[in-house]
Simulated assay, not measured.
Amino acid sequence: MTDFDPRALRSAFGTFLTGVTVVTTHDKSGRPIGFTANSFSSVSLDPPLVSVCLANTSSNFNTFSEAAGFAVNILSEDQISVSNTFARPSQDRFSGVEWKPGPNGAPILAGVSAWFDCSVFKTVEAGDHLILIGRVEAFDHSIAPGLGYARGAYVTPAAEARALNRRAGVVVSALIERDGQILLLDDGNGGLTIPATEDMANGADTALAQLIAGCRIKAEPGFIYSVYQDKSRRQHISFLCQAEDGSPANGAFTQIVESTLMDVADPAICTMLERFARESRLGNFGIYYGDETSGRVKPLVRGS
């Protein structure tokens, strides 16, 4: 049995399961094969299990149904070409892609946001698809933002931020996460808050980059996590970002528990942090739309 830090694995699951994924393995001759997954989700943390769905009509069906293991590669936002390569028919999808064998043997693509190298735990026939359930034998993830796909188009964190450029009355904040903990700052009144700014002179993407730089920690801008309007009719946009190891210049990474929430004076931020803690445990994130007191959470679209 492979032992993992549950907090690190939960963080990897929760952060990346909504992105575009490429599933890989080797055929009987040792040749690497792969496809862009149309469904990927976590199944269990103990034991660590993930699942992907493979269409019965896929040219890879026999190979994957008989394979002893496979890897799930979560593509980063600059890997649109990789997604297209593995989504289209090709004699050798790996010819222009850098990869290496993972610890459990399956092909791991270079530059991905995260990967999970799995042994086959179980296969389940489900209508016109086969569900492959894999036991995670090894995994790794980076701070690179994932590539999303919704309504027939790719979605990236950079594009989301640029779409908000130069809007007046907008507050940009950063929910900076590492291993399930959030970077919290002193709000100046003895309480806690998250990095935020109203300086939108150069756009939301620049404002977010400056927030991260001000914390003096390496982190990548992520997807919009919450959108709401306060009583002053200011629009608040919060981005979920991933941080690397290192000590921030201000504040500290903190586990979101009840005692921590009691120190957060802003009720909207408190609610957002409470929601993050809950979704992090479930590994199923969404986007909040509403005002500072009520709204709805729309689940993120899973990879295609």
Rank of each mutant, 00 (worst) to 15 (best):
S11W: 09
V22W: 04
V23M: 11
P32K: 14
T36A: 13
N38E: 09
V43L: 07
L54I: 13
V72P: 04
V72T: 03
L75Q: 06
Q79F: 03
I80H: 08
I80W: 03
V82E: 09
A87V: 05
P89Q: 05
D92G: 11
P103W: 05
I108L: 05
V112Y: 01
W115G: 00
C118F: 08
V120W: 15
E125F: 08
D128T: 15
H129F: 07
H129D: 13
I133Y: 06
G134F: 03
A138D: 15
Y149M: 06
G152R: 15
P157Q: 00
A158P: 01
A159W: 04
A163I: 00
V171T: 11
V172W: 04
I182V: 15
L184K: 04
L185V: 12
D186A: 07
G190P: 01
L192N: 04
P195A: 07
A196Y: 06
E198W: 02
D199R: 08
A209R: 11
C241R: 05
C241G: 03
Q242V: 10
P248Y: 11
P248T: 06
P248L: 12
A249I: 11
G251F: 02
A252R: 07
F253Y: 08
Q255R: 07
V257A: 13
T260G: 12
P267I: 05
T271D: 15
E274A: 14
R281A: 14
F285C: 01
F285V: 05
I287Y: 03
Y288H: 07
G290N: 08
T293N: 14
G295F: 07
S304Y: 08
